[in-house]
Write a protein that binds this DNA or RNA. Structure first.
Length: 425
RNA sequence: GUGGGUGUAGCUCAGUGGUAGAGCACUGGAUUGUGGCUCCAGGUGUCGCGGGUUCAAUUCCCGUCACUCACCCCA
């Protein structure tokens, strides 16, 4: 009986891990430069947390959560990161310690959807959350951060979409206006849209169904209804983006599938090949009411999340990162193999990356192995070298060979590796 | 949940009603301790699984499972 990876969940083999590490390092560097600190939360939360924050009429909560029932309590594998971070923010009363909190996270999320290109059941997101700043300037800063990161990650062909849902009052007014517009035309809507008209009318807006789009085309735009502070927030956000020189598309049809958003909403899409139908790289927005709804103080918040797998798909063509230069130790015979282990220890202590052959084989096969590993150096250690107290250092790139006395070996290797491509220096 | 596509060596795939191949990869060798190129040699497959038709099925039919792409929705 062989076992397989669970549907929609994938191993990431070492040959791919280099790209992941580089991406994660880039993300950390950019967000830390923006003064964000890392938050780590459990992968499992009370199911009710997600129901409360994401919304009970959303697809995520309705059908996509991995739920574990355990001794009367219902737990769920986190489908996204914002709810957990908000829970942690409230639970630790972080608002009482600092006026503004800037957190970032990186990790696995779980949604029981049908997998396809750019969509998995276990996937990875990186995201940022800011608590305690009502915006709109921080909203613009976050978008700038996202685009800076994507650019540094080597992601091409980006499009930033922005919109605003307004505050609760505007949203309620718009909801009424939309329902008033759609209800007489309900017969022309698709089945799911008819259902959503009752449960979550805003979601009808981003239906891809052609019939729905025709009906929606004549609907009023929420952006036109923005008034007062909502309008000022929106205008100032756009002015800030203009001032930053960040290109964007105002997209009134942008309606995120999570219920908790208020005012600012944004999304980054890419037309990069390799992405397939799932071309949304980043989704984010403001959720000023959530902290209060989770039992915390009325602290405004905004955040975004980006999908690492999708980003990797979008940057597929980029060259894989090269690891640190390696050194291969090729001992010939039992005596040399014994000696080689200590040699390798010394070299590693000096910072080198060393693989030592412990299996035996002809020198030819060992050199072949050293070469296929991409080693920079091969240290040949046979009876002749042992008797003379030297090690033959072979440079695989230049073919140069040199007998180096044991005592000078570590320094010699360090010097040679330092000049090699991929070395930290 | 719905629809399409695909399941043959480790990987990418070809192929035929008479129990199967290529390339890559891997291992060894091309005069005894010097790799990358080239050449030679070598091994492996329940042809996804179950059933049916047939003298005979990997090849035809049915079912099933898996993977995959798309819809829905989302990162």
């Amino acid at each position: 009986m062989q076992f397989r990876q669970v549907q929609g969940m994938h191993d990431i083999l070492p040959e791919q891990v280099g790209r992941w590490q580089r991406l994660e390092a880039t993300f950390r560097r950019v967000v830390e430069a923006h003064a964000f600190s890392e938050l780590r939360t459990p992968l499992v939360e009370p199911t009710a947390l997600f129901v409360r924050s994401i919304g009970d009429a959303t697809d995520i909560v309705e059908k996509e959560m991995f739920v574990l029932e355990r001794e009367g309590e219902s737990l769920a594998l986190r489908p996204e990161g914002t709810a957990s971070a908000a829970r942690a923010f409230v639970e630790h009363a972080v608002h009482a310690r600092e006026p503004v909190t800037r957190w970032y996270y990186l990790g696995a999320m779980f949604r029981a959807e049908r997998p396809q290109r750019g969509r998995q059941r276990q996937f990875h997101q990186a995201g940022c959350e800011v608590y305690g700043d009502p915006g709109p300037w921080v909203d613009a800063e976050l978008m700038e951060l996202v685009l800076t990161f994507l650019r540094e990650a080597g992601c091409p062909e980006l499009e930033l979409h922005v919109s605003s849902l307004g505050g609760p009052e505007t949203r309620a007014r718009y909801r009424d206006a939309l329902v008033a517009h759609l209800t007489p035309r309900a017969a022309a809507l698709s089945e799911t849209s008819q259902r959503r008209l009752a449960t979550n009318p805003l979601r009808v807006l981003d239906s891809k169904d052609p019939a729905d789009q025709a009906v929606v085309a004549g609907a009023p735009s929420l952006l036109d209804l923005l008034e007062g502070d909502d309008r000022a927030h929106w205008d100032e956000l756009l002015a800030s983006l203009d001032s930053l020189g960040v290109p964007y598309v105002v997209d009134p049809a942008l309606v995120r599938g999570l219920d908790y958003y208020t005012r600012t909403l944004f999304e980054v899409r890419s037309s990069a090949g390799g992405l397939g139908a799932q071309n949304t790289l980043v989704g984010g927005g403001r959720y000023d009411a959530m902290i209060g709804e989770l039992g915390g103080p009325p602290v405004p918040a905004i955040g975004f999340a980006l999908g690492l797998e999708r980003l990797l798909l979008a940057t597929e063509g980029a060259p894989a990162p090269t690891g640190r230069p390696r050194c291969f130790v090729a001992p010939l015979g039992a005596r040399a193999r014994r000696e080689a282990l200590g040699l390798a220890r010394e070299l590693r202590a000096s910072g080198a990356v060393v693989e030592v052959d412990t299996r035996g084989g002809s020198l030819k096969s060992l050199l072949r192995r050293a070469d296929s590993l991409g080693s920079r150096l091969c240290l040949v250690l046979g009876d002749g070298e042992l008797d003379r107290g030297v090690v033959q250092v072979k440079d695989l790139a230049s073919h140069e060979r040199a007998d180096v006395p044991r005592g000078a070996l570590v320094e010699d290797v360090r010097r040679r590796l330092a000049g090699a491509p991929g070395s930290p220096e």
